[in-house]
Nucleic acid binder design. Structure first.
Ligand SMILES: [Mn+2]
Ligand SMILES: [Mn+2]
Ligand SMILES: [Zn+2]
Ligand SMILES: [Zn+2]
Lengths: 154, 154
DNA sequence: TCAAAAATGAAAACCATTTTCAGTTACAGA
DNA sequence: TCTGTAACTGAAAATGGTTTTCATTTTTGA
């Protein structure tokens, strides 16, 4: 199921690149594949390392360029963590808010935030035009909690 | 009123440095003063420029070091914007959520978010331990909206 | 198959932040 | 008020992530 959903994601992304007028090079596909398969928010270097398994001649520059394009196409998003501000994760259609494990970087998407009323109230009383909202929950996933207990630290 | 509240804030911060065991040097006070007086989220360079008015011999290094200490003491917070991840703003006691103007960087604090239920639901079903939440509204303040209309661009 | 445009990667440049270190300063205690 | 000393400072150098440059390679439509 994780595999098939990552296949589907990759297919969608290939189509998005095509219809955006971008060529489907093997370097780009290697980067797409890494993020499509991952359930984590990864930084550029880690994406680079993993993508080189698929495409050993890949350069780090192309990773950055491909990520830039993915952001522009709305396929990936930047994830800000307390420790590191430049991680990238797949955008899951529909749900925009993230639960991020500060230890392993895995992300989960959730919905159910009802900020509409709050945003309207804020806009109404200040004249502010709210264009975007960021909501991100940060903590420790179940697995990391268990691992940290094993290691002793908390 | 803005002036007196910035005076009060500066006084609080001086006390916090003192009781944290940090010396009150003129370099530090210049940095504190800038953030105490500002209602914006500023980056290190802008803080440096403004602080040199008070303390011309100030070095940029000390700005970074003082901001670091302010974060540790909970007096300032890092503000993440789409354009720039390293701005700093005063922490307003009680309310932790920000409304940020993406154009001028001014920040307003708001409360009234009720995320408790959401966070419990998320934690319950996933075993995730939510340690922190980031909620930030991004948009355009009334003044910037007016100025942008005048200039033609939107 | 071929030409043109797009894309690539190695190397260099860039730039915000951090580290180093020798000199300066704040301040507790005399 | 003076003094000793640890804390602090700023100039300069180092660092490290990201971007730019540019000659070469690849993709793709004709
Ligand atoms: Mn950030
Ligand atoms: Mn809250
Ligand atoms: Zn984890
Ligand atoms: Zn504004």
């Amino acid at each position: 199921m994780a595999a098939s959903s990552s296949e589907a994601r990759l297919a969608r992304w290939r189509a998005a690149f095509k219809s955006g007028g971008y060529r489907l090079t093997s370097a780009r596909v290697a980067v797409l594949r890494v993020l499509a398969e991952s359930q984590q928010a990864l930084d550029a270097t880690r994406i680079f390392d993993r993508a080189r398994v698929y495409e050993p001649r890949l350069g780090l520059v192309t990773v950055y360029r491909t990520l830039e394009t993915m952001l522009a196409l709305g396929l990936a998003q930047k994830v800000h963590c307390p420790a590191q501000c430049a991680r990238y994760a797949a955008v899951e259609p529909g749900h925009n808010h993230l639960l991020v494990c500060r230890r392993c970087g895995r992300v989960w998407y959730f919905s159910g935030d009802d900020l509409g009323a709050l945003m309207q109230a804020v806009a109404g009383e200040s004249g502010f035009r709210v264009e975007d909202h960021w909501l991100q929950l940060i903590g420790l996933c179940a697995r990391c909690r268990a691992e940290m207990e094993t290691e002793g630290a908390v």
